[in-house]
Design a protein around this nucleic acid. Sequence first.
DNA 1: ACTAGTGTTATAGTTGAATAGTACACTATG
DNA 2: CATAGTGTACTATTCAACTATAACACTAGT
Lengths: 133, 133
Amino acid sequence: MCHEVSIEFDNNLPIYLQIMNYIKKQIITGKLQPGDKIPSVRELAVELQINPNTIQRTFQELEREEIVETRRGLGRYVTSEESKIMSIKKEMAGDLIQHFIQGMQELGFKEKDILTIVSDAFETDKSNLKEEG
Amino acid sequence: MCHEVSIEFDNNLPIYLQIMNYIKKQIITGKLQPGDKIPSVRELAVELQINPNTIQRTFQELEREEIVETRRGLGRYVTSEESKIMSIKKEMAGDLIQHFIQGMQELGFKEKDILTIVSDAFETDKSNLKEEG
DNA sequence: ACTAGTGTTATAGTTGAATAGTACACTATG
DNA sequence: CATAGTGTACTATTCAACTATAACACTAGT
């Protein structure tokens, strides 16, 4: 019952979208399993210090994406269709990589540059992150 | 004089930030050279069909980042400090890759997965983009 | 029935992005 | 000095996200 969750909110993106992504990641990584009950509107509102209406909107969107199901009076549950979850995972990963590659290309980087940078990111990540020529 | 520019605006991000990124990319890729005059507030407002106040805010932010300079009564100009431009380029690229890698890891992908996916993205990009097991 | 815990809906108010319109200040040019 | 093209500043308005609060509907358990 005591999750102690806290999301760092980015002011430049609506909160309901950020919570959506948070929940979806929980489901995709298996922290929320198919069929699991997800927190109630009021519960999550208290936990995240967010207005219940905003949580409600979040959940409605998640339901629209068919990744959670509502049983009125009972609560909301993660969909049991694992294929739907895999589908959402691929969609989110696809969006990430599309955004990344397009952004890098718009900055003037070419394929080999990008591949190198990604590899380096992991190496540099293991030590530190500073500027290099 | 006739650029015929048009930006596809994303509703989930403030317009002034999107225009900022657009201008910064123009500078980083050399389409706007150091010392070049950038469009005036009113000119760009007409070109992008955006309110002058929004453009004004965009330019103020660009000036705060020291990537453009203002000469009152004359117009705004791309900074002549190329090191500043390189710095901004590295910052934007760093943000992109950080956002990408963190996002992928939050979806459960590991280093080797990510490297594979990036490579595949270029290959798949050359033919088409569909779903694969 | 009653109660508690769900989802659902509705109204009103706050905040910030963006728009609309106007006016003022500075600079170059004639 | 007059004009045109700059940046700058201000007020008012619209719109969506978010908040605050309340009420209603459904389900399970007692």
